[in-house]
Nucleic acid binder design. Structure first.
Lengths: 228, 228
DNA sequence: GTCTATAACACGATAGAC
DNA sequence: GTCTATCGTGTTATAGAC
């Protein structure tokens, strides 16, 4: 790696390499034996580093989990690009994005419950609602903003501006379902996505009906006031 | 305690006493220092029993949490009785039941996040979605069935039969919000309940509109197929 | 700044004696 | 049913090497 000073920053490069080695080793062991049965000693051992070194790069075992989650999101954003480029209709765009997440996360389905466990603690920085995960959350919400903005969906402006966050919540629900899904290739979750997305589309189009509009406005107002 | 054999079952009685002593001590320490900082050693010590004895009654620290949750539900069902007896309209019935939960759970708000944490692990028997907690879940859902059945709410039968479970899910959402709520006396959560309940009522009444009915049926069908 | 080696600590959980 | 002793593991500490 070349820095601005013109000196090869091999130390940093090597550090980055070690960091990735530790993470990939941890993820492999998590996959093979589950999160609970993988010890920090085993991770360090398998990666050929000392326990102290593992802690030098990742403050705790949970941080390895968090790093995996960040990785997952990066991969999701990549995989989603061709879908958003190709599809124009709202339904296939949303369904494609949700299915893509299932594909990317598939290898880790077995132990993903553990992530959910640590993530559900509101005081944990790993919570999807925490300040610390705001960047990751915002990036994720942004994907849904693009799903909407690049689509044929016509909606009143105030609902449209809240929708990305609502779709992110929908995905959290899908993830919750996915975590509990023990069917082959998470067939039930895929069925849920396939059926729920057209329904969401129809529900959104319902907001054009005059009698529905009023309630919709109040729902949007409530959501707004909640977020503060 | 007198058993069917006519013999005083002092052993069992004493055991039950120990069990309750351990639980109440644990809950007190949880309240005073939080879940994380309360050790099993401290619980045993404070209760005047050995660590091994504590584990004899509660298989893990998480099980103490589960026992608390069961206690909470029992209390909730009690507190809710007068509300269901007095109110006939759907909105105050539902709002009353949700507010009552906030009141009952208030002393434990500080560490309740930890419950959510254990609850989110799908493989844990403590998950609210697990088979093991089905009795507790069913009892909880039943409260919402009574909220509906004793009210003036008029709904198509298939939606009405799914509604208790949906309202239970609504409460899970409220709990999620509550866990993250740091305002005094969880003011924001109370505001959420006060505003959301009338909205739920209005949304339910919307299902009478012809154009809405079709989508509603599909939503109900989807929920049905999910539960299997 | 990156890394090793090793020991020690705290705590959840368990084994086995009584 | 209850105890004491012990284990396994996340995490930290120390003391240094390159």
């Amino acid at each position: 790696m070349i820095t601005l000073t013109g000196v090869t920053d091999s130390a940093t490069a090597k550090g980055e390499q070690t960091r990735e080695l530790i993470l990939s080793t941890a993820l492999r062991l998590f996959r093979e034996q589950g999160y609970g049965k993988t010890t920090m000693r085993a991770i360090a051992n398998e990666a050929g580093v000392s326990v102290g070194n593992a802690y030098y790069y990742y403050g705790s075992k949970d941080h390895l989990m968090q790093a995996y989650y960040d990785l997952l999101q990066d991969q999701h954003r990549e995989v989603v690009e061709p879908i958003l480029a190709a599809e124009k209709a709202f339904v296939p765009r949303l369904a494609g994005v949700l299915r893509a997440w299932l594909d990317v996360a598939a290898p880790y389905h077995e132990f993903a419950g553990t992530f959910f466990k640590t993530a559900a603690d509101p005081r944990s920085p790993l919570s999807p609602f925490s300040d610390e995960s705001r960047p990751a959350r915002d990036a994720s919400i942004d994907v849904f903003r693009r799903v909407i903005d690049g689509s044929d969906l016509k909606l009143p402006g105030d609902l449209k501006s809240e929708l990305p966050e609502l779709l992110w919540l929908l995905q959290m629900g899908v993830v919750l379902f996915w975590v509990h899904d023990r069917t082959d290739d998470v067939r039930r979750t895929r069925a849920l996505v396939d059926r729920a997305v057209p329904l969401v589309d129809r529900l959104l189009r319902l907001t054009r009906i005059p009698g529905v509009r009023g309630v919709t406005n109040d729902v949007v107002a409530l959501i707004r006031s909640i977020r503060t």
